[in-house]
Design a binder for these strands. Structure first.
Length: 812
DNA sequence: TATTGCCTCGTTTTT
DNA sequence: CGAGGCAATA
C-alpha cells in the first residue's frame, strides 16, 4: 500500500470513528439511492456531514461535484461549517444550498431560455399576494369570497404539484376552482410580464428548464455526481421531480405518475423536447435523510409520500434506520414513541437511548390560562434554581396567539425571553418599501414594487392615479417607469400629473446614481441612503408624531447597517463565479429575497428562555421543554380536526416532545381566554395517548373530570355563523352571552333587519327538530343552549343563532 | 385624497 | 383582544 493510500485510509478511519453502526453504514454507502430514516436526535446532520467528507476523502468525487440541499439557510450554513471542520479545509465549490437558492442560482444563469432576464425579481409571499389580488380584481372576482391569500395558496399548491394553469383547469371541479384557475393563468402571465418569479416558480421553472432543454439537463446532471437531501420528509412533488431529473435514468420517463407533469406553457422558441437516446444514464447517487414522523409541512404541499414510498420510487434503494437517540432520556422517548404509534400512515419506529430512564414526563391541568402561565414560570424558576440555564429552556405552543400570556407572566417574573417567529425583519413594511425601491430600480417591469412605492411616502398619488398608470402600461406594453414619463397619455389630470412629476424626478435622480454605481461600484449602503434621502422617506418619518415611527427609523438604520455589512462582506470566489455579470445590487436583492429572519436572528443570547411554535421548534433541543395549550381545538387545532388532518398534528406533537433532553411538561387550561372572554377547554386527545409508565404519579388524574365533559357533544366554534351586517343592535344580548362564557360578537348570527323576539314568542325547540329559517332555509337543531340555538342547515352547515333574534319556524 | 370608525375574523409558514 | 378591510366622512 502506498503511503498516500495509507494516509487516506487513516483519515477515513478517523472520520468513521465514533459513528454507530447504522450511521457508519450510511456514510460508507457504496452508491445508488439511499434513504436514511433518521429519528429525532439520532445524529442525522452527523451522517450528512460525514458522508460529504467521506466522499471527498475517499476520492469518489471532488468537493465541487456534490450538491447538498436543505430547506433553510441556517441548515445549509451549519452543514457547510461542519463539513469544513471535518475536512479541515475550505469548502469552496461545495454546493450546499437551500432548494430555492440552488434553483435561483441555476435560473440566474439560464433565465433567458425561459424568457426572463437574469435580473428577474424574486417575489416573496407578500408580493405574490398583492399580485394575486390584482389579478382577482381585474377578473372581477369578489375578493371576499375569493380571498387573495386563499387563492394564492391554491395556486401555490398547483405549482408545487407541477400543474400548469391548463392542467389545473382539467382538475377544477366547481366555480371556486375555476376562478382559482383563471386567477392562476393571469397571475402567471403577470409574473412573466413583471420579469418575476415567486418562490414556487424557482422550483417549477427549474424543473421546466430541465425537462425541456436536454443540453442544460445533461450539464447539471454531469456537474453533480452526488446529491444529498436534508429533511426529505418535507419535500414537495416539484422538489421530488427535480431530484429525479438530476440523478435518475431517463428522466423524462421515470416520473411517478402521481408526480408527473408536463412543462408549463411558455411561448418560447428553442424547445428541446426529444427522446433521450444517447443521454448519459443518471448516476443514481441520491442520498436522502429525513424522518417521516416529523413531516409537518403538508399544508405547504410537502408530500409525506415522498419518504414513505421511497423504495417504490427507487426499487434498488437502500434504507437505513437510525433509532438510537442521543438527546433525550427514555421516559421522554417512550412518550414520543407512544404518541406517534397512534398514526397509521407512518413507518414503524422505536427510539431508544442509553441515557437512562430519567425524570418522568409531567402532565398538568391548570384552572385557566393565567394559572397555566404562572405554573410554567414557577417551574422555570425552580429549574433555574437547580442549575438549568434559561437558555436551555423552551415554551412551545401550537399557535402564536398563546405566547402573549406566557410573555406577560415571564415579564412579571423578570425573566428574559425571546420569541422566535413573528414578523421578520425583511417583512417589515418600511424595510420592504426600501427594498421595493431598489428592486424597481433594478427591474422597472416589476409592477408590484412600483405600486408599492409610488405613493410612499405620501405624494398625493392615489389609487385611481396608480391604477391608470398601471393600466396604461399594461395596455401599451411599456413598463411603469416609462408610463410615468407620459402621464397625459395615461389620462391623468393636472394635479395628478404634478404629483407624478415629483416622483418621476426623484426616480430619475436615483437612476442616475445607480447608473454611476455600475461604473464606480457605489455601495448598496449608499443606494439605501440615497433612496431614504431623495424620496423624502426618512424626512417623512422624522417629521411624524406617531411614536411607532421611531422604531421604523431604527429598522431603516438596521437595514442600512445590513447593506453596509453586505458591501464589506467579501463574496466567496464561488459566489463571484456564479454571479458573474451581476452587480452588487443584484446580489443584494437576491440575498434578501431568499434570506429569512431566522438566519439574521442573533444567536441565542445567554440567559433567555425561548418561546416558539411547534413548527419553529423542529431541529431545536432544550434541557427543559414546556408544551402549553394542550387542549382539543388548540392542539390538535380545530381546523385540523375538521379536515381529518390529525396525523400531521400528531407528528407535530412528536416533534414537540422530542425537543426535550431531560425535563418535559405538558399543560392544559380548563378555561382559556383566547379571543374575548374565557371559554371552557378540554384536554388534548394527545394527552390521553401518553403512556402512564412514562408519566409521574400526579399526571394520572390530570385528565379526569374533564374527560367526561369532553365526551359531551361540543359545538364546533369554527363553524359558527357570523353576525349579519348592520350595526350592533344585538349588543346587549351578545354581552349577556359573553357573561355566560359563550363567545360573543361575530360568532353569533343575527340576520340583518331581524327584530328581537320577545321571550314568550320564541319557539320551543328540541334537538333533532327540523326548522326553517328565513335566510338559511331548512335545517336541523343540533344543540340548545341558553339563549342560543345551534342549527345544522342543509345548505350552510352548522350555525349558532341568538335565540332572541333568530326567527325559526318548527317544521314538525 | 386621507382619515375615521365600524365590522370581521381568528393555524402552522423552512423559501 | 387587535389587525386589517372597507365604507362613510372631512
Amino acid at each position: 500500500m502506498s503511503s498516500r493510500a495509507e494516509a487516506e485510509a487513516a483519515y477515513v478511519a478517523d472520520l468513521l470513528e465514533g459513528l454507530n453502526d447504522p450511521q457508519r453504514q450510511a456514510v460508507e454507502h457504496p452508491g445508488g439511492p439511499l434513504l436514511v430514516i433518521a429519528g429525532a436526535g439520532s445524529g442525522k446532520t452527523r451522517v450528512l456531514t460525514h458522508r460529504v467528507a467521506y466522499l471527498v476523502l475517499t476520492g469518489q468525487c471532488s468537493i465541487g461535484e456534490i450538491l447538498a440541499v436543505t430547506f433553510t439557510n441556517k441548515a445549509a450554513a451549519e452543514l457547510r461549517h461542519r463539513v469544513g471542520d471535518l475536512l479541515g479545509r475550505s469548502t469552496r465549490g461545495l454546493w450546499v444550498q437551500t432548494f430555492h437558492s440552488a434553483c435561483a442560482r441555476i435560473m440566474r444563469v439560464e433565465a433567458e431560455k425561459l424568457g426572463y432576464t437574469r435580473q428577474f425579481t424574486i417575489y416573496d409571499s407578500d408580493d405574490s399576494k398583492r399580485l394575486v389580488k390584482r389579478c382577482l380584481e381585474s377578473l372581477g372576482a369578489d375578493t371576499k369570497r375569493y380571498t387573495p391569500n386563499g387563492v394564492r395558496n391554491q395556486i401555490s399548491d398547483h405549482k408545487n404539484r407541477l400543474r400548469s394553469p391548463e392542467q389545473a383547469a382539467e382538475l377544477a371541479a366547481g366555480p371556486y376552482d375555476r376562478t382559482v384557475v383563471d386567477a392562476y393563468a393571469l397571475y402567471q402571465k403577470q409574473l412573466a410580464r413583471n420579469n418575476a418569479m415567486d418562490f414556487d416558480d424557482l422550483m417549477f421553472r427549474t424543473v421546466d428548464l430541465f425537462e425541456r432543454f436536454s443540453e442544460v439537463r445533461t450539464r447539471y446532471r454531469a456537474a453533480f455526481k452526488h446529491v444529498l437531501v436534508d429533511e426529505y420528509q418535507d419535500t414537495n412533488p416539484a422538489q421530488y421531480r427535480l431530484l429525479q431529473l438530476l440523478c435518475m435514468d431517463d428522466p423524462l420517463h421515470t416520473a411517478g405518475s402521481a408526480h408527473s407533469g408536463s412543462p408549463a406553457q411558455l411561448a418560447l422558441d428553442g424547445d428541446d423536447l426529444g427522446p433521450l437516446a444517447g443521454e448519459e444514464p443518471g448516476h443514481r447517487n441520491l442520498m436522502v435523510v429525513g424522518d417521516d414522523a416529523q413531516s409537518i409541512y403538508g399544508f405547504r404541499s410537502a408530500d409525506i409520500r415522498n419518504i414513505l414510498d421511497f423504495e417504490d420510487d427507487f426499487p434498488d434503494a437502500q434504507v437505513i434506520r437510525l433509532e438510537q437517540n442521543y438527546r433525550s432520556t427514555q421516559h421522554i422517548l417512550d412518550a414520543a414513541n407512544a404518541v406517534i404509534a397512534q398514526n397509521s400512515d407512518q413507518r414503524p419506529k422505536h427510539l431508544w437511548t442509553d441515557l437512562g430512564a430519567g425524570e418522568a414526563v409531567r402532565v398538568r391541568a391548570l384552572q385557566d390560562d393565567f394559572t397555566e402561565a404562572r405554573w410554567v414560570v414557577a417551574e422555570v424558576e425552580r429549574l433555574a434554581g437547580e442549575g438549568v440555564q434559561f437558555s436551555e429552556m423552551a415554551v412551545l405552543y401550537r399557535t402564536n396567539a398563546l405566547s402573549r400570556i406566557i410573555e406577560t407572566a415571564l415579564t412579571n417574573a423578570e425573566i428574559g425571553y425571546q420569541v422566535i417567529g413573528g414578523l421578520r425583519f425583511f417583512d417589515r413594511a418600511e424595510v420592504k418599501d426600501v427594498i421595493a425601491y431598489l428592486s424597481w430600480l433594478q427591474n422597472p417591469a416589476n409592477t408590484v414594487a412600483f405600486a408599492r412605492i409610488v405613493n410612499r411616502p405620501r405624494r398625493g398619488i392615489g389609487d385611481t392615479t396608480v391604477g391608470r398608470l398601471i393600466a396604461h402600461a399594461a395596455a401599451t406594453g411599456i413598463t411603469p417607469l416609462e408610463a410615468i414619463e407620459q402621464p397625459e397619455a395615461a389620462g391623468l389630470k393636472t394635479a395628478a400629473i404634478r404629483a407624478v412629476g415629483v416622483f418621476r424626478d426623484q426616480i430619475a435622480e436615483l437612476r442616475e446614481t445607480l447608473a454611476q454605481s455600475g461604473e464606480n461600484d457605489v455601495s448598496v449602503a449608499d443606494l439605501v441612503e440615497q433612496v431614504l434621502r431623495v424620496t423624502g422617506y426618512r424626512a417623512d418619518l422624522e417629521a411624524s408624531s406617531d411614536p411607532q415611527d421611531e422604531g421604523r427609523l431604527e429598522n431603516l438604520d438596521q437595514l442600512h447597517a445590513y447593506a453596509d455589512e453586505f458591501d464589506h462582506d467579501v463574496a466567496t470566489a464561488d459566489e463571484i463565479a456564479a454571479t458573474a455579470g451581476q452587480t452588487a445590487l443584484d446580489r443584494f436583492l437576491e440575498r434578501t429575497a431568499l434570506l429569512s429572519d431566522a438566519d439574521h436572528q442573533a444567536e441565542q443570547e445567554g440567559g433567555q428562555i425561548t418561546l416558539m411554535t411547534l413548527h419553529n421548534a423542529k431541529g431545536a433541543e432544550y434541557d427543559a421543554v414546556f408544551l402549553v395549550g394542550c387542549e382539543d381545538g388548540i392542539f390538535p387545532h380545530s381546523r385540523a380536526i375538521d379536515s381529518g388532518e390529525l396525523e400531521e398534528e400528531r407528528r407535530l406533537c412528536y416533534v414537540g416532545l422530542t425537543r426535550a433532553r431531560r425535563h418535559l411538561a405538558l399543560t392544559w387550561a380548563r378555561r382559556r381566554a383566547l379571543y374575548g372572554p374565557p371559554q371552557a377547554q378540554y384536554p388534548s386527545r394527545f394527552l390521553r395517548e401518553l403512556p402512564s409508565d412514562a408519566l409521574d404519579e400526579d399526571s394520572a388524574d390530570q385528565l379526569t373530570g374533564a374527560v367526561s365533559s369532553a365526551s359531551r357533544p361540543r359545538v364546533d366554534m369554527s363553524k359558527i355563523g357570523r353576525m349579519g351586517s348592520g350595526s350592533g343592535k344585538g349588543l346587549e344580548s351578545v354581552k349577556r352571552l359573553g357573561d355566560m362564557g359563550l363567545k360573543r360578537g361575530s360568532d353569533l348570527l343575527r340576520p340583518a333587519g331581524t327584530p328581537a323576539m320577545p321571550e314568550d314568542e320564541r319557539p320551543v325547540l328540541r334537538v333533532g327538530q327540523r326548522v326553517r329559517h328565513g335566510k338559511f332555509g331548512t335545517g336541523e337543531v343540533t344543540a340548545l343552549e341558553t339563549d342560543v340555538f345551534v342549527i345544522r342547515f342543509d345548505e350552510f352547515g352548522e350555525r349558532r343563532l341568538i335565540a332572541g333574534f333568530a326567527k325559526l319556524t318548527p317544521l314538525d
